[in-house]
Design a protein around this nucleic acid. Structure first.
Lengths: 332, 332
DNA sequence: CCTGACGATGGTATCGATAACAATTTGTTG
DNA sequence: CAACAAATTGTTATCGATACCATCGTCAGG
């Protein structure tokens, strides 16, 4: 930067100002400086700027999986919201593992992000403590935490799942099962199972029709294996609620292969409104959440929070509940 | 850090050493320091360390889309390779847009990564120049660039597509079409189309059976729309090669809906071996590339290159060709 | 008992930018 | 044209760690 400054006949400070959009520099000087920058191929070093300004321009985002289109949509939403504001997303994934989340949070805080967005309402005690004492805005998403750390942009997975079961009941199904992961690592999956459980209980339906299969993320293939197991174990089941659309799809395809009509022999519903659910045949009944919008809103909450910190304001945490919708299609 | 140092009765330098794995500190002192760190809840500030050590510990990774499981698998591979080496991935996506790639590269270089991995062999002239003059290792992946910038871990999309068409020919198909995106933004898609073109020409098959539909990423739904258009335009077509498995899946589902047998009325093949191709019915013939492995290898090449830079070595660029495989399934 | 090697630790300069304030120039108004 | 405000630019200290070199014991070998 000193070199650019010398060449343009100004001080380094003026170069610095010329390179920020809001810098107070005369148009003429800015032009000259930008030309010099171009000429020398100079690239600003934000890692140095971060040190003096005490703002890195990073927003850390922690998602369970980068391969799950629901969460990558959320990541896209976050990017959309913050890019253009001079912020850059620092993305990491936990593989649905709270221990890994803790490590990741630790690693990210080491980079001194201006804020952090996590995709869960539950954390290890250490992770929680780190998030609380980091001194930056925190947004928890995709969940309704019982005891929020700071801001929240989410919905109740249990409520959504419950609503889906009720819808199936209205349609006439009376023996409804749940297919989900075997591990409790996936807290959202656990919440969906809980919602299912509540619904069958309050509807007076047979309970305990639950197949647990594999570790998250539950794959299409596991859905296929699970539905076979389900039908063997409880032949009278007439509908299956799957923890996600992917397992629902796998289940339906396995049914096709075996000549079981969907619906007819068994109805299958999913969760998440993945593209495959809209394009497969039959199309899959599911719960749609606007994943990208969760990211957008989380990003916006983060922008406001960062601006508040910058300007010394101290407003309370925001809680945003995003809507979900049960979408009925041909699979039920 | 000064506070930790004072509390532990040592200098800041010793604290710094205690916090690196390779630091030369006596076990006793390290123990005392780590205890103090824990007690105070101190978190190392890498953004400051980066400035003095001139190594940020970032590896920038630029992929076309975060929603495409092929590329997110590659990103996972990169993470796997570099994490545990004190490196952190800085991920960005271009939406298959070379202009956006340029902006992204610019933004990433501003963070002074220790290396950068891009998912393409073609770039805007400016992007190319920036990558060349950044003074850090560059790995181009998923492609075989005509004129590599530095290291390469890839394969020829054209060759893969050509091999697929040949396999269809062996199976007896004689009127083979291609379904791809309308834009030339997706350079890999363009390469696949090129390979298709070469194959039908050298096999003496009818040429020009090409449907272009929508912007990348080509969705499932667009695959469905495209196959209808294809059959209307050339009713004698007996096989369709799709630019990706997702469009192939959409096409097959649309055929189901309309009662067109796959195969029979028309065979459909994809590209990428997405999970949906293994789990749908019929399962989809495709070209499998080990996406995660591309990331792993790219990460390893990067690790070596960074170590070389650190130790002042200056070996030539590596080129790694990863294998692809045509997998024949029931859809053809 | 001296010497040199080595392990452990400390002191100081420095990485490359920006904040904060100071200084200078320019413009405006009565 | 004086006087003051606004716009522009410069100076210096600083952000929080690490590189580099110096220092101080300790111990083995002669």
């Amino acid at each position: 930067m000193a070199e650019v400054a010398a060449r343009a006949g100004v001080s380094a400070m003026t170069v610095s100002r010329a390179l920020k959009s809001d810098g107070a520099v005369s148009e003429e000087t800015r032009g000259r400086i930008l030309a010099t920058v171009e000429e020398l191929g100079y690239v600003l070093d934000l890692s140095a700027g971060a040190l003096s300004s005490k703002r890195t321009g990073f927003v850390a985002a922690v998602i369970p999986s980068i391969n799950n289109s629901n969460f990558s949509d959320t990541a896209r939403g976050i990017t959309e919201a913050i890019e253009g504001q001079g912020l850059q997303m620092l993305l990491g994934y936990t593989d649905y593992d709270m221990e890994k989340e803790e490590q990741l949070v630790r690693a990210m805080l080491t980079r001194r992000p201006d804020g952090i967005i996590v995709t869960d309402g539950r954390h290890t005690p250490k992770a929680r403590r780190m998030l609380q004492s980091a001194g930056i805005p925190v947004v928890e998403t995709w969940d309704m935490p019982a005891d929020p750390i700071d801001h929240v942009v989410g919905f109740s997975n249990a409520e959504a799942s419950r609503a889906l079961v009720h819808r199936l009941y209205q349609k006439g199904y009376r023996n409804i099962a749940f297919i989900g992961g075997a591990s409790r690592r996936d807290t959202r999956g656990a919440d969906r199972r809980l919602g299912y459980k509540r619904a069958v209980e309050e509807l007076g339906l047979p309970v305990g029709r639950t197949i647990s299969f594999g570790n998250p993320p539950i794959s299409m293939q596991q859905g296929g294996e699970a539905i076979v197991q389900l039908i063997e174990q409880w032949p009278d089941v007439d509908a299956a609620v799957c923890v996600s659309d992917l397992s629902a799809f796998g289940a339906i395809m396995e049914c096709h292969r075996r000549g079981w009509a969907v619906p007819g022999r068994i109805a299958v519903a999913g969760f998440g409104d993945f593209e495959v659910s809209r394009c497969s045949w039959p199309r899959i009944t599911t719960v749609a959440v606007d994943c990208r919008n969760i990211g957008l809103e989380a990003g916006r909450v983060m922008l406001r929070a960062i601006a508040d910190v910058r300007d010394g304001r101290r407003p309370g945490p925001e809680t945003l509940i995003v809507p979900f919708e049960v979408i009925e299609r041909e699979s039920t």
